[in-house]
Each structure stands twice: as C-alpha cells, then as structure tokens.
C-alpha cells in the first residue's frame, strides 16, 4: 500500500487529472501536490493522489553526476 509510482499526465480537469503508466489509465486528485503540473509531466502517484512532480532536468542532472563521477574514476 505504500507504493508510489511515476505516472504521466494526460488531461487535467480542476482538482483531478487523468494519468497513465504502461497503458493503465487512472483518475487521480491534485489536492496535495504543491506545484500545478502540466499535461505531459510525470507525477508521483500514491493512493490516488499526486504527491510530487518528477523533475526531468533534475533527473538528467543526477544521471550526469553519476556518469561524471564514474568516468573520473574509470579513466
């Protein structure tokens, strides 16, 4: 029950949004998330509520950090 997964926003209507992951569609609530997400954003969904937006730029930055760290060590 603790599972929270990233899902993509397809449509927003007031306090609810339609989201999908792997072909599964679902309607979720947006009461709790702090920034207004946009269609195409990924949000972390738990118990039918979006908790947080998944920041793609931060994701890229983290990956870059991982890779850089490794390259420095590997060369």
């Amino acid at each position: 029950m603790c599972l929270a997964i990233p899902m993509e926003i397809l449509k927003i209507e007031g306090k609810t949004a339609e989201v999908q992951v792997g072909g599964v569609r679902q309607t979720i609530r947006l009461d709790v998330i702090s920034e207004d997400p946009a269609v195409g954003d990924y949000v972390i969904v738990h118990a039918g509520f979006a908790l947080s937006r998944l920041d793609k730029e931060e994701a890229l930055a983290t990956l870059k950090l991982f890779q850089e760290g490794l390259n420095i060590e590997l060369t």
Binding site: D31, V32, I33, S52, L54, K56
Partner: peptide, 18 residues
C-alpha cells in the same frame, strides 16, 4: 538528498500544511 528529481529539500509545504 540524492533523489532531487522528486524530493525538494524543503519537502511539499502544501501537503505538510494540509
């Protein structure tokens, strides 16, 4: 914090207020 793509250091202040 190594999960910056989802976690802001300050957390979700709106959720905490609620």
């Amino acid at each position: 914090n190594a999960y910056t793509r989802v976690v802001a250091d300050a957390g979700n202040t709106k959720a905490m207020a609620m």
